[in-house]
C-alpha cells in the first residue's frame, strides 16, 4: 500500500509534482500514466525516499520509506535500467544488495533463476543488453520478496518477447496479492496490464479510475456521417435525441447511435449520404485529450472524460 498526501516537489519555481493525493492498493496493478515530464519518475523517487518532497508526504505500508526497518523486504523497485555498476557481475551486484538487508545468498541464485539470467550471472553487467539489464533490475526488485513493487517505464526499449515477459510478471505479482505500481507513457501498455489507472499531467492527477471504467467511457464508438444536406440531417438526428458534433471536414459525428439507425433516419427523409461509418475511439486518444494542455482540456467539454477528474 502506497499513500501520498498533498505530495509536492518543486525545483526552483517550477512545480514538478503539485500536491497530489493517491493510494496504490494491494492485489492490483495500478498504472501511473502520463506523458514524459509529467512527474511520474519524480513521484516514484519520492516514494522511495530518494528525492525529498517539497511538501506533503508519502508512505509505504504506513511508514515513510526511510523508517522501514528493512526496506528491501517491503519494497522492490525498478527505477531505471541503469542503476548498476557496469564493472560488477550480475551476481555480485545482487550479492551486495542482498547483504544490506540480511537476505540469504541462496535467494540471489533464486532471483537470477526467476529472471532467466543464469547463463550470464558471472559476467560483468556492463556488457548486458537493455533487456538483460532490465531483467537484472527486476531480479534486484524481487530480491527481498517484497509486498510492494514499483516499476518505472519497465517496457521501455524492450523487444516484444521482453515486453510480454514483463507484462506477465507484473500481472502475476499483483495476482499474488502484492501492491504493484507501474508507470508508463503508453496508454496501450497500461490497457493491457493495469487494473487501476492514475493519470498524471503537469504534476497533477488528472484521473484516478478503474481501468475498466476508463475503457467503457472512452472506447465508446460514434458514427461518422457525411451528407450534402448536412444541416437537415443534423436536425433530423437531433430530433431522435442523439448528440451531434461536427468534424473538421463538415461530417457529423453521432454519439449513442448505430450506423443502421443513422442510415435509416437519412433514408426516411430521402437524404443523400456520401459517407457512413463507425469510428472506434482509441484509448490513446482519450489519454491524449486528458493530458493535453489542461486549459485546452477544460475547454473541450464535448469530449468524454473519465470519472474522478
Amino acid at each position: 500500500m502506497i499513500t501520498a498526501e498533498r505530495l509536492t516537489k518543486r525545483y526552483g519555481d517550477k512545480t514538478a509534482v503539485d500536491a497530489i493525493d493517491f493510494t496504490v492498493r494491494p492485489g492490483a496493478v495500478t498504472g501511473f500514466l502520463g506523458p514524459n515530464g509529467a512527474g511520474k519518475s519524480t513521484t516514484m523517487r519520492m516514494v522511495m525516499g530518494l528525492d525529498h518532497p517539497s511538501g506533503g508526504r508519502v508512505t509505504v505500508n504506513g511508514r515513510a520509506y526511510r523508517d522501514l526497518p528493512a526496506p528491501l523486504h517491503e519494497v522492490g523497485a525498478l527505477l531505471e535500467a541503469k542503476a548498476i555498476h557496469g564493472g560488477r557481475t550480475a551476481y555480485n551486484h545482487l550479492l551486495w544488495l542482498a547483504k544490506t538487508n540480511g537476505i540469504p545468498r541462496r535467494r540471489v541464485d533464486e532471483v537470477i533463476g526467476m529472471v532467466g539470467l543464469d547463463a550470464v550471472a558471472r559476467k560483468r553487467s556492463g556488457g548486458f543488453s537493455l533487456g538483460m539489464g532490465q531483467r537484472l533490475g527486476i531480479a534486484a526488485a524481487l530480491l527481498g520478496d517484497p509486498g510492494v513493487l514499483l516499476f518505472d517505464e519497465p517496457v521501455n526499449g524492450l523487444d516484444p518477447e521482453g515486453i510480454r515477459w514483463i507484462r506477465n510478471l507484473i500481472r502475476s505479482l499483483a495476482a499474488e496479492g502484492r501492491t504493484v505500481f507501474v508507470s508508463s507513457h503508453l496508454m496501450s501498455e497500461m490497457a493491457l496490464t493495469a487494473d487501476h489507472l492514475l493519470v498524471i499531467g503537469r504534476g497533477a492527477i488528472l484521473a484516478d479510475t478503474d481501468m475498466s471504467d476508463f475503457i467503457a467511457r472512452n472506447s465508446a464508438a460514434h458514427v461518422r456521417v457525411r451528407s450534402p444536406q448536412g444541416g437537415v440531417l443534423a436536425e433530423a438526428l437531433r430530433e431522435r435525441g442523439w448528440a451531434i458534433r461536427r468534424d473538421d471536414d463538415g461530417a457529423l459525428l453521432v454519439d449513442g447511435a448505430t450506423s443502421e439507425q443513422v442510415g435509416d433516419v437519412a433514408g426516411s427523409r430521402g437524404l443523400y449520404l456520401h459517407e457512413l461509418s463507425v469510428v472506434n475511439a482509441s484509448l490513446e486518444e482519450a489519454f491524449m485529450r486528458l493530458t493535453a494542455d489542461s486549459v485546452e482540456y477544460h475547454a473541450r467539454t464535448d469530449q468524454p472524460v473519465p470519472a474522478g477528474v
Partner: peptide
C-alpha cells in the same frame, strides 16, 4: 538465455507482515 514467463511462487505470502523476527538494516550489514 532461458526466458521463463512466470515466476516461481514467493517463499512467503506477500501480505503485510510483522517486523518481528525479520532482518533489519544494521551497520554490520552495511
Amino acid at each position: 538465455m532461458t526466458t521463463p514467463t512466470t515466476l516461481s511462487p514467493p517463499a512467503a505470502a506477500p501480505a503485510p507482515r510483522a517486523d518481528v523476527g525479520r532482518p533489519r538494516l544494521t551497520f554490520g550489514r552495511l
